[in-house]
Nucleic acid binder design. Structure first.
Lengths: 335, 335
DNA sequence: GTGAAAGCGCTAACAC
DNA sequence: GTGTTAGCGCTTTCAC
């Protein structure tokens, strides 16, 4: 393959001049420039970015570490990231961890080995060692959606989970519901923890006693939703409404309700946290609390690129909490 | 940041020896090895893969170029690719083209600049120039799902679209349907073309005259499906069954049918090409023709890695056509 | 079993 | 406006 030196030879100039042309340095005579450009076009020379990276100690690559690529949330966030990155000529390398700690640690190491310029991550549970590595390298890191105490020093883009849940409960209560159940996710990750917290706060605010039977422990998975509904329908004293703590739970729960031939919202009102394409396809269309996923990606990327450009000071840590929005469709009954 | 030389200095050895330890070369005394390993662990040294790549002229990165990350087909294929790549220590860099030719061409150049070891692509319409580049670099390329005549020289992993469509039509006919419509996608890409072709062949095979009113031109999008249904219901002589040529069309069509309050399968039987998670959530659950997406990714990756390992001869081009499988649920009526 | 040295393809002083 | 040169961090041949 032809390299810079080869092009230089053909053009009878030095490789430095070729480099200048490739990098649009103005101080090259238009005659020389034309000659070199012609050769580049005819020969199909493509610069070796790897070599450039090595020289410059930057890669123009950012790592996007996601916990589960099958959740539509991540492609949606990716949209926002791409939006920012494409314009600024950054590439994105995707690492999918499948909610697995070991895979996650390997992925972080991979990103560091590659000397990515920055990382946007939805972590499961990164180990101390890996985070130390990120720190040592000074690689800017922006967290999305999930955080933890020992990651407090990093920028974070999330949503107001507590407020969101309060909106949901208030809405249900306005429709006359007081017996409100929730199928929630693991409390050791931010969304799981905060959403349950929000639920409890909201219920208390209404002066209702919390009924522990109405709080269904679960996972952020479809089977979590499916099993949750079955538990609810085994209760003697059933709720009139049920909240699903994320999109996957909502899907599984819907499936269960269909299987049980439950009439929505006549027999039970349902509402989901997180909008998703299929939500409007439910029968009846599912009322949800939407969050600005694309915007999250965009903001995270902007913060990241700014840190990359201005040197990562680890100062002025951003903690961005975006608002949610209730999308009322037809799955909640007015009692 | 500590580099190989730095580690060498601390260990009072040459950087060559450190390199040997890092690369598990056996001819290093266990004493020296231990010393170096200790230093590596304590210092958190992480090798610079960029430099290694430059030296070795390979990157251990493969590019995965997809036409639209929001279609669940791609994450699913990715699963299979990851499966193969992770074990062999290859990384995947994702390029999303959003069905846009310009973006696609930029993506190919990006991949080439990065000197990826291989590319797996679902192309929209790569330009001659870019493909010439791929050729010139000798970068192995495996096509998935879509191909075209001038890409015949590359490995391809696809499915038997024609046979699949025949299966669908036969099934419908067995249930007594003869008035069968199709909402199909653009015929300038393989799946669009072949599936329509299969439909026509199958209809003819049954000795039925092709009714052009029953062939709805469309796009592989939800709105394509939505509009398609509306056209069908404006027909005086309506079909008793309708085939959706891909998953997005199926989703849009389902939405339209719901909006029109059409009873499925009483008023119309429907069947989709391509399974997707939500198909089983339709009311009634959607009968579909499934294709082995994960397997496609796995095979493509295996072929690619083999070409990478054995030098890309461009010989013995593989042309793998996988079979589809009918998943019968409840959306087709027995007339 | 270990080290010295060349070189992968590029950029950026510095010199002219 | 252009060329010379050093060097980014690695691997690997060839000595010893």
């Amino acid at each position: 393959m032809l390299n810079q030196k080869g092009v230089a030879k053909l053009a009878e100039v030095s490789s430095a001049t070729v480099s200048r042309v490739v990098n649009k340095d103005p101080r090259v005579s238009s005659k020389t420039r034309k000659k070199i450009l012609d050769i580049i076009n005819n020969s199909g020379y493509i610069p070796n970015i790897i070599a450039k990276n090595l020289k410059l100690s930057k890669t123009k690559i950012i790592g996007y570490l996601v916990s589960n690529i099958h959740n539509p949330f991540f492609p949606s966030v990716l949209d926002g990231i791409e939006n920012v990155c494409t314009g600024k000529n950054y590439r994105i390398i995707l690492e999918n961890t499948n909610e697995n700690e070991k895979t996650e640690n390997r992925a972080i190491t991979t990103l560091l080995e590659l000397r990515v310029d920055g990382i946007i991550a939805i972590f499961v549970k990164p180990s101390d060692v890996e985070i130390k590595g990120v720190e040592r390298f000074g690689t800017p890191l922006v967290l999305i959606d999930r955080r933890s105490d020992y990651l407090k020093k990093y920028d974070y883009v999330g949503i107001n989970n507590i407020d969101g849940m309060i909106k949901i409960v208030k809405y249900l209560n306005k429709l006359g519901h007081t017996k409100i159940a929730i199928i929630h996710g693991p409390v050791d990750i931010t969304p799981g923890h905060e959403r349950l917290e929000g639920y409890k706060i909201a219920i208390k605010n209404l002066g209702i006693n919390i009924n522990n039977d109405f709080i269904i422990n679960g996972y952020f998975t479809e089977s979590g939703g499916y099993e949750g509904i079955k538990k609810i329908f085994m209760l003697e004293d059933r709720p009139t409404a049920c909240i699903f703590s994320n999109n996957l739970i909502a899907m599984g729960a819907y499936k269960a309700l269909m299987d049980l031939k439950v009439k929505i919202p006549e027999q039970i009102s349902i509402i989901g946290f997180d909008d998703f394409k299929f939500a409007s396809y439910f029968l009846p269309p599912l009322t949800v609390l939407d969050r600005p996923t694309k915007e999250m990606g965009k903001l995270a990327a902007q913060i990241l690129l700014e840190r990359i450009d201005n040197g990562n000071s680890m100062k002025n840590v951003k903690n961005i909490i975006l608002n949610t929005e209730l999308i009322i469709r037809e799955s909640c009954a007015d009692l």
